[in-house]
């Protein structure tokens, strides 16, 4: 039996009928065409599928779509809703060369967003532990850590109450 759900994704309200076995990752990528969020390991180890549900970063591959009924979801597309002006985290990733193949980037950026909302001034150890659940197989961690530190400096006000993602 399909379940009727209402979810707000990057500010847009969607009403959908979903089978209970479909994950948030599948609904985002296949139904809403938000393919910025990747599907990696399917077991919560790689972080490529990370999105925000309300104020928490979660693995969308281990989240049933039916369980996010009534919640707000932010994907990497929501970081730059206009499509031209990038989010300070994205600017910092580019400026610091923190992107190689790009597959881990959406998840890394959402993990960075969650970190900076909880802790606007993280030290290096805190940054590393915040992205411990995000694998980069281009092995670019140093630049990613630098980028997140730069984003924290550039944009100190990424508080939870902030409505702009």
């Amino acid at each position: 039996m399909k379940h009727h759900i209402r979810i707000q994704v990057n500010g847009d309200l969607h009403e959908l009928a979903v089978d209970p076995w479909r994950t948030l990752n599948q609904v985002l990528r296949e139904d809403l065409n938000l393919t910025g969020t990747k599907f990696g390991c399917g077991s919560g180890d790689c972080g490529a599928c990370t999105v925000m549900v309300d104020d928490r970063s979660v693995s969308s591959c281990l989240t049933l779509a039916v369980a996010v009924d009534g919640k707000k979801v932010t994907t990497v597309e929501g970081l730059a809703p206009s499509g031209d002006r990038l989010h300070p985290i994205q600017e910092a990733f580019i400026a610091n060369g923190a992107i190689q193949c790009g597959f881990c980037t959406p998840g890394m950026e959402i993990s960075a967003l969650h970190l900076l909302r909880c802790n606007p001034n993280p030290d290096e150890r805190q940054i590393r532990s915040a992205i411990a659940g995000n694998l980069c197989r281009c092995t670019g961690y140093n630049k990613i850590v630098k980028a997140i530190a730069a984003a924290a400096q550039a944009s100190p006000g990424m508080s939870e109450g902030d409505d702009t993602p």
């Binding site: 990370t50 281990l62 993990s111 969650h114």
Partner: peptide, 9 residues
């Protein structure tokens, strides 16, 4: 236990 995302779920 695990990582940030798993601890959030």
């Amino acid at each position: 236990t695990a990582n940030v995302q798993v601890r959030n779920m």
